[in-house]
Write a protein that binds this DNA or RNA. Structure first.
Length: 409
RNA sequence: CGGGGCGUGGCUCAGUCCGGCUAGAGCACUUGGUUCGGGACCAAGGAGUCGGAGGUUCAAAUCCUCUCGCCCCGACCA
C-alpha cells in the first residue's frame, strides 16, 4: 500500500474531544471517526486492526468447533417478551415501529434470537451439542457513552452460544470457550486476567470475566503485588495476607453458564434418549470486539503513539522512504514481502523525514524500515522495532528472514 | 437523569468579563522556488459571519432568553 494513496490523514494536534489516551491516539492516527457521541465509524486503518482481531477470534472459535452464523440486528419485540427482558433491558433498547405498526428493536444482544433459531431446528439429542457464534453490531442506548469505543451506543461483539443435553456437556463446552478466549487474548498481545464474576442480567450461575488493567476501566479489582493475583474483595490477600491495591479493569470478555433460563422461557426443547422432552442447556460467551481497540491501545503505547502488538497491527512493515530514487527498489521489496503474506505500507510521500517518522510511530506498525542515503550506499536497511525502539541494520534478505522468524511462518 | 465546562476557517485556539475600525494566530491546504535521515524555508493565494433561533442596541462573536451539540463528574453499565 502506498501511503500517498491511502486513506490515512493523521492529525497534527490532539483532538479536542479526546477523553483518554486510547481515544486520543485512535482519533489522531485516523483509526476512527467520531460520528456523534457514542457513535463511531472505523476508518480504513482502524478497520484493518479490527479485521485482524476478528480473524484471530474466528480461528480460535473454529478450532473449538464453533460454527459462524450472522443474526439480524432488527428484532421483533415479541421474542423479548417471552423472557421478560423487554423490561429488564428497556432502558438501553432502541425501539421503534415499522410501517405496519409492528414494534421492533435494534438487538442489544442475541440470546433470544439464537434461542428461537435453536427451537426451530433442534429436536433431538442427536443434534447436540453445538456451538454457534457471530461477529455482529449491537445497539445500546447508553445513559452515558464514554471513552470512545469503550462504551458506545453501537459496537461490535463476538457472541457465541453453546447448546447441550447435559450439565456435563455444558461444562465441557464452557471449558472449550475459556480455552479459546485465553488463546485469543494472548494472540492479540493482551496482558489479561480471568476472574469469576456476577452474571447480572444475563441469568445463569457460573460466569467468568476477562479483563485488562487500565485507568479507564469501569470495573474494579484488588491486586496483590507479591502474589501477582487479583481479587474481587478489598480484604487482605487470602494467600499471603498483604494489603491489596485497587485496580481499574476493562472487561473485554464474559462467559456465562446460562443453563435453561432461555430454553425454558422460549421452549427450546429436545427429546433425550428415553424420549423425554427437556430444555436445551445453554452457555453464552461474549467478546467486545470493538472494545479491544481501546483495550489494546490503552495498554500498549508511548509518547509517540500506539504500539500495536504484531498480530493485530494494521500493517506489518512501514517503509519510510527518504530518497525518491529508491521508490522502485522499495516497491519491489514491498511486493516480495506482500507475496509472503506481510502487509506493507510504503511512505513515499513528499514530506520531511520527521513527519514520516512521527506518522510511523503514531500509526504504530511493529517494524519501521528506513530507506535513504545510508541504504543507497550500503544496501543495508535501518530497521527500527517500534516497541523497543531497538535499531538493526540488515540486508533485504536478512530482514525477510528476521520477519519470517518473528511471525514463525 | 442531576452538577460543571465548552461550541469562532479543515485542526488547535486567541478575542467574550468592560459591545465599536474590513474577525485574528499557528498548523493544514493550493501555486512557484529552494531544501531533503528526524514535525524545513521563502513568496503568493484560497478558505470562517463566530453552533442555531429570537431579543436588546445607532452598533452584537461579545449582553439577555430559548434551543441544539460535544466533553467531564455522578447515577447507570449485558
Amino acid at each position: 500500500m502506498l501511503y500517498s494513496k491511502s486513506f490515512i490523514f493523521t492529525l497534527r494536534e490532539d483532538p479536542k474531544v479526546a477523553e483518554c489516551t486510547s481515544q486520543k491516539l485512535l482519533l489522531k492516527g485516523t483509526f476512527l471517526y467520531m460520528v456523534s457521541s457514542g457513535i463511531y465509524a472505523y476508518l480504513p486503518l482502524g478497520w484493518r486492526v479490527l479485521s485482524r482481531i476478528s480473524a484471530i477470534i474466528r480461528k480460535h472459535m473454529q478450532a473449538q468447533g464453533a460454527q459462524e452464523l450472522f443474526m439480524s440486528a432488527l428484532q421483533p419485540i415479541e421474542i423479548w417478551e417471552k423472557t421478560g427482558r423487554d423490561k429488564v433491558l428497556e432502558e438501553v433498547m432502541f425501539k421503534f415501529k415499522d410501517r405496519k405498526d409492528r414494534m421492533l428493536c435494534l438487538g442489544p444482544t442475541h440470546e433470544e434470537e439464537i434461542t428461537e433459531i435453536v427451537r426451530k431446528f433442534i429436536f433431538s439429542h442427536k443434534q447436540l451439542p453445538c456451538i454457534l457464534y457471530q461477529i455482529q453490531t449491537k445497539f445500546r442506548d447508553e445513559a452515558r457513552p464514554r471513552f470512545g469505543l469503550m462504551r458506545s451506543c453501537e459496537f461490535i461483539m463476538k457472541d457465541a452460544y453453546s447448546f447441550d443435553t447435559t450439565e456435563e456437556g455444558l461444562h465441557e463446552n464452557y471449558e472449550k470457550m475459556r480455552t479459546a478466549y485465553q488463546d485469543i487474548f494472548k494472540e492479540c498481545g493482551l496482558q489479561f486476567i480471568m476472574t469469576e464474576a456476577d452474571s447480572g442480567a444475563m441469568g445463569g450461575s457460573i460466569s467468568h470475566e476477562f479483563m485488562v488493567h487500565s485507568p479507564i476501566g469501569e470495573d474494579t479489582l484488588y491486586h496483590c503485588v507479591r502474589c501477582a493475583t487479583y481479587h474481587k474483595d478489598v480484604k487482605t490477600c487470602p494467600q499471603c495476607g498483604d494489603s491489596l491495591q485497587e485496580k481499574r479493569m476493562i472487561e473485554m470478555g464474559h462467559t456465562f453458564q446460562l443453563g435453561t433460563k432461555y430454553s425454558i422461557a422460549q421452549e427450546a426443547l429436545f427429546l433425550d434418549k428415553t424420549g423425554q422432552r427437556k430444555p436445551v442447556i445453554m452457555g453464552c460467551y461474549g467478546i467486545g470486539v470493538s472494545r479491544l481497540l481501546p483495550a489494546i491501545a490503552e495498554t500498549s503505547y508511548d509518547e509517540k503513539g500506539i504500539i500495536w502488538p504484531k498480530n493485530v497491527s494494521p500493517f506489518d512493515v512501514n517503509i519510510v522512504l527518504l530518497d525518491n530514487t529508491l521508490t522502485q527498489d522499495a516497491l519491489g521489496f514491498a511486493e516480495i514481502m506482500e507475496k509472503q503474506g506481510f502487509a506493507v505500507l510504503v511512505d513515499e510521500r513528499d514530506e520531511a523525514a520527521g513527519v514520516k517518522f512521527n506518522d510511523a510511530y503514531l500509526i504504530g506498525n511493529p517494524y519501521i524500515l528506513i530507506m535513504g542515503k545510508k541504504y543507497l550506499q550500503s544496501q543495508k536497511i535501518d530497521v527500527e522495532i517500534r516497541k523497543t525502539r531497538e535499531k538493526l541494520n540488515l540486508s533485504k534478505e536478512e530482514f525477510l528472514n528476521f520477519l519470517k522468524h518473528e511471525y514463525a511462518r
